[in-house]
Simulated scan of single mutants.
Amino acid sequence: MSLSYAKFLAIIKTKGEVMHFEIAENSKVDESKPLIYAWDIIDRETGELKGRYVGKAMGGSGRPRKQYRRNVVRMLAGKRYRLAKPDAFRAIHVALGAAVTAGDRIVLSFLCNVADGEDINKIERSYIQSHAPTLNRI
């Protein structure tokens, strides 16, 4: 059964957010500055890690906090990813959507800040190597 986007939003408004997630506290990270983050998906029954994604955010925590939720809501509602790329949802979006459907635990962690002059791509690659994500394209 496919829901219209308006009906889907009505369900969200009635039941609250569609994508519930926890934010792991890290007092060493300034969320207003460039940072490296990770999404962890944890099986609701076994507690085992089902998936991990490591990413970067030049503008701080706003994009990971808001855009992933937005993309998951759109995907679950049958909407396009982007006008020019309708089916371009990435593996992390699909995995987060599956986690929402399954009721799995979703945790967003802010791993570190990236200082002015540091190469955010190099730092992200380092964290990808050390955190063994399963949802990044490597």
Rank of each mutant, 00 (worst) to 15 (best):
G16L: 05
R70Y: 08
K50A: 12
T46A: 02
M58K: 10
A102M: 02
Y68P: 03
V107K: 08
P34G: 04
W39P: 00
N136V: 02
P64S: 10
P34R: 00
I12S: 12
A132V: 14
I36Q: 10
N26H: 09
W39G: 00
E124A: 15
N26L: 14
I138T: 12
R65Y: 07
S4G: 02
L35Y: 04
I123R: 05
D30I: 03
V107S: 08
G78N: 06
S109T: 07
G16Q: 05
A132G: 12
I36Y: 07
P64G: 15
R105C: 08
I123C: 07
S4C: 03
L96N: 02
I23D: 11
H131V: 00
P133S: 03
L111W: 06
K33S: 15
I41R: 06
S61C: 09
F89K: 05
V100Y: 03
R80N: 08
G97V: 03
N26T: 12
A102E: 00
P133V: 01
R82G: 07
Y81W: 02
A88P: 11
K85S: 11
S32D: 15
R82Q: 15
L35T: 03
Y37G: 10
K66W: 06
R63K: 14
R52L: 09
T46L: 04
R63V: 08
V100T: 03
A38R: 12
I12D: 05
I12K: 15
F21Y: 09
F89H: 08
A88L: 04
A38K: 07
L83P: 10
I128W: 06
D40R: 13
Y81R: 01
I11F: 06
S27A: 10
I128G: 13
V54M: 05
I42D: 08
N136L: 04
R125Q: 14
K7T: 09
F8C: 03
K33W: 02
H131K: 05
E45W: 08
Y53A: 13
Y68K: 04
G47M: 01
